[in-house]
Simulated scan of single mutants.
Amino acid sequence: MIGEWLAIAALAAAFLAAGAFAGLASGALGAGGGLALAPALYHLLGAAGFDGPLLAHQAMGAAAAALAVLSAQAALAHARAGGADWAPLRRAGAFAALGGGLGALGAAQLAGLAPLAVWGVAAFAAALLMGFGDSGSRWGAGWPGGVAGPALGLGVGLVAGGASTGGGAFAAPLMRRYGAEPRAAAALAAGFGAAAAAPAALVWALAAPAGPVAPFTLGAVNLPGVALCALAAAATAPQGARLAREAPGWALRLAFAFLIAVTALSFVAGAARG
């Protein structure tokens, strides 16, 4: 009995620590910090003793569900603050949701470390965007019309849902390339992130586990863990924002981008070795 309670306490501590780290990064960067949640969960759950063939799936599933909650909270906060043009989300949000569900459905079929290898490829690209994404020319003065807008929404959803990265990693730089101010870009990224992560979380929750999973897990989504992640992230985001005011933004972005790039390459290399 004592051993079971210790295991549950270790599980809770892992989710709290992962959420705290992701919240700190999100607060410091403004957008894109949720990118760190899936690998943090993978390492912390493994350290807590829940290592196994479905560890990557549990990390990805919990990350998708927690990011759905956190992105929705961020989008609502931006909506209350005002100043964001939500037209791109109205035009392409449904396509982002479709992409999120399809991306997660594909990732859920992979075995072993392969789901986190998908994260690794996406995260390495996101690290490049984070480090150099604002150095290029603008692609337009507003969100594109025609089929390009829905296609971009679908692409953001596929990446955010398939790799459990959240919307900020790709949507925010994309919005800035199309002329959005940083605050408006962060608002739209949160909206696209919520649209993509919600169906992705549902797919992971409906996934039939092919092996042992942590207690209180639905499919690949640990429900109490998601709640703990979201609470810890909400608690530490203000500290991250305070750090952003005290440290150069470019230094924080480059340090985080370097950490993500190294982690991404390690997952890709691990999956390649089998």
Rank of each mutant, 00 (worst) to 15 (best):
T263W: 03
W143R: 00
L174N: 01
L76E: 06
R253Q: 14
Y42M: 09
A74W: 02
Q109V: 03
L41K: 12
F170R: 06
G112R: 03
F258C: 13
A186Q: 06
L252S: 10
A126W: 10
G193V: 07
S266L: 13
D51Q: 13
M1N: 06
V262I: 14
G161I: 07
A200V: 05
L254C: 04
F192R: 08
L35M: 13
R80E: 07
P248L: 08
A64S: 15
A187Q: 06
A47H: 11
P212E: 09
L6G: 03
W204I: 05
G49E: 10
L29V: 06
A214R: 01
A241P: 02
L254K: 15
A237C: 03
S135Y: 00
L202Q: 01
G103S: 05
Q109R: 15
V262E: 14
I2T: 15
A36K: 00
F95L: 15
G32I: 02
R138Q: 10
A104E: 03
M130L: 15
T263A: 15
G46F: 11
F267S: 09
A104Y: 08
M130R: 00
G93R: 02
G249H: 12
G82K: 10
A198D: 00
A187L: 09
L152C: 05
G61K: 09
A141I: 01
A244Q: 12
G46W: 10
D51F: 00
A117W: 13
A264G: 13
L102N: 04
A47M: 14
A31Y: 10
S26A: 15
G131E: 04
A180W: 00
S137H: 13
L174W: 00
